[in-house]
Amino acid sequence: MIPLPRAWWLTSAMLIGVAVGFMAGIAATMVVTAPVRPDVVIGLVVAVPSTIGLLLVLCSGRRWITTFGVFVLSVAPGWLGVLVAMQAVSLG
């Protein structure tokens, strides 16, 4: 059984995770200047945090580990959102 913390802890972890994902996406865009294939970027940005977050949630034995797993899991949508927005703006 997955130990679930209070709902506001999970919501806070998700909100902070998306914000960290936004900042990571902006920082990665500023640092990486080499051309990278889009499928590789999507794979890294979505698959790595999602896999680590899901493993943390599924294998957690304590509530704080579940909260941290939700945080890591929610980094991916924020990071991907920034990359999609930057791509959309640069094509226009």
Rank of each mutant, 00 (worst) to 15 (best):
G43I: 11
A13Y: 05
R37D: 12
V70Y: 04
L15E: 01
L83C: 02
L58F: 09
W79N: 04
L4M: 12
G43P: 02
L54K: 13
G61L: 07
R37N: 12
W79A: 08
M30K: 06
V82N: 13
F71L: 14
V57Q: 04
I2N: 03
V72N: 07
T29N: 15
F22K: 10
A24Q: 13
G17F: 03
G78H: 07
L54F: 14
L83F: 15
W9K: 06
V20R: 07
R63W: 08
W9N: 01
P5F: 02
L80V: 12
F68Q: 06
C59G: 13
V89T: 09
L73I: 09
A47R: 04
I52R: 10
W79Y: 15
V40L: 14
A34H: 11
G21L: 05
V36E: 06
A47Q: 06
W8G: 04
W9H: 13
G92C: 04
P49W: 12
G25V: 09
A28D: 00
L10Q: 01
L54P: 01
G81E: 09
V41S: 10
M30S: 14
A85V: 11
L56C: 09
Q87S: 14
A7M: 07
S74A: 09
P38Q: 02
R37L: 04
M86K: 06
I26E: 13
F22S: 01
G81V: 07
C59D: 09
V40M: 12
P77A: 05
V41N: 08
G53E: 02
A85E: 12
V41E: 14
A19V: 15
T67R: 00
M23G: 15
I42D: 08
V84N: 12
T33R: 15
I26N: 08
W64Q: 09
I26V: 14
W64P: 00
V31Q: 10
M14I: 03
V72D: 08
L44V: 12
L4S: 03
M23F: 07
G21P: 03
A28I: 13
S50L: 07
M1P: 02
P77K: 05
L10P: 00
I65H: 03
Q87T: 13
I65L: 14
W8R: 08
I52F: 00
L80D: 02
M23E: 14
P77L: 01
L83N: 06
T67Q: 09
V36M: 14
F22A: 04
M1R: 04
R62H: 11
F22M: 10
V31W: 15
G21E: 01
A88C: 06
V31P: 00
V20G: 07
L83D: 05
L54N: 11
S60G: 08
S90N: 06
V45G: 03
L73T: 02
V40T: 13
P77F: 00
V89F: 11
L54T: 13
G69L: 08
L73R: 01
L91H: 11
